[in-house]
Amino acid sequence: MNKAFVKENDGEGEDDAGNEPALPPDTKNYMTPRGHRRMREEFEHLVKVERPNIVQVVSWAAGNGDRSENGDYIYGKKRLREIDKRIRFLSKRLDSAVVVDPAHQSGQEQVFFGATVTICDSDGAEASYQIVGIDEADASAGRISWISPLARALMKAREGDLVRFASPAGQREIEILEIRYE
């Protein structure tokens, strides 16, 4: 049967993000300078180092004859598709990035993008979180996305404020102990 009549996915037109979080519609792609630098370094490494190395391996493997059972060729082509997908994703995110330096944030008495906020929950447990871009978020390292429920609840709050927000464990109340911009 002609491929035009069959709905098959041959890998073309797939979402470039893979498992990466999507930006909410009509929002800006805020990033800290550190996050932007990390993403730019990954992009440049893929373009200047990793992709050329894989292209060289695939070219060498293709010259060895039968490609149907050539592991270097098959794996190389698969890896090349993964690299190209990641390069497209990084390129789109870098092009749409709005870099916000927390050290130059105005209104530092309130919580805004880039703030590091120390909070205390109702059990007396303290934790610190930095509000960062969605591509930089890593809760285990204390970096939460600006679109997360906690970050949205913290926005515009001040030291000493009690903030309520909906967490996966239910409604929570926290107190803001300190706000820093680093």
Rank of each mutant, 00 (worst) to 15 (best):
Gly142Thr: 12
Leu162Ala: 04
Pro149Asn: 11
Ser140Glu: 13
Ala97Phe: 10
Gln171Ser: 14
Leu80Tyr: 08
Ile87Phe: 05
Arg81Ile: 08
Val100Lys: 06
Arg164Gly: 07
Ile119Thr: 03
Gly133Lys: 05
Glu159Arg: 11
Ile134Met: 11
Asp101Phe: 11
Arg158Leu: 06
Ile83Pro: 05
Ser148Glu: 06
Ala125Ile: 12
Leu90Pro: 05
Gln130Cys: 08
Thr116Met: 05
Ser96Val: 02
Gly124Asp: 09
Gly160Trp: 10
Gln171Pro: 14
Lys156Arg: 13
Gln171Cys: 05
Ser145Trp: 01
Tyr129Glu: 00
Asp84Ala: 08
His104Met: 09
Arg81Trp: 11
Leu150Val: 07
Ser96Glu: 15
Arg172Asn: 12
Asp123Cys: 06
Ser128Arg: 09
Ser91Phe: 08
Arg158Tyr: 07
Ala137Thr: 07
Ile87Gln: 05
Phe113Asp: 01
Glu126Tyr: 12
Met155Phe: 13
Ser148Arg: 06
Gly107Arg: 10
Val117Cys: 00
Leu150Thr: 00
Phe89Ile: 00
Asp138Leu: 10
Arg143Val: 00
Leu162Tyr: 06
Phe112Pro: 02
Ala127Cys: 05
Ile144Asp: 01
Glu126Arg: 14
Ala157Tyr: 06
Lys85Ile: 01
Ser106Ile: 13
Gly124Arg: 10
Asp95Gly: 12
Gln110Asn: 12
Val163Ala: 01
Asp121Met: 02
Gln110Arg: 14
Leu150Met: 07
Pro102Trp: 00
Ile134His: 08
Asp138Glu: 14
Ala169Met: 12
Gln108Phe: 04
Ala125Gln: 15
Gln130Arg: 13
Glu82Asp: 11
Gln108Asn: 06
Arg158Asn: 11
Val132Ala: 06
Ser145Glu: 01
Arg152Cys: 09
Val100Thr: 09
Glu126Thr: 15
Ser140Arg: 10
Val132Ile: 11
Ile87Asn: 03
Leu154Cys: 00
Arg88Asn: 11
Ser167Gln: 11
Ala153Asn: 04
Val132Cys: 07
Cys120Met: 15
Gln171Leu: 14
Ser140Phe: 06
Ile131Arg: 01
Phe89Ala: 02
Ala137Ile: 03
Ala151Trp: 00
Glu126Gln: 14
Ala125Tyr: 15
Gln105Met: 12
Phe165Trp: 15
Leu80Ser: 06
Val117His: 07
Glu109Val: 03
Ala137His: 05
Gln171Met: 14
Ser106Pro: 13
Ala103Cys: 04
Ser91Gln: 12
Pro168Gly: 08
Phe113Met: 03
Ile131Ala: 01
Val111Trp: 01
Val100Pro: 04
Arg86Trp: 10
Thr116Tyr: 02
Arg79Thr: 09
Ser140Ala: 10
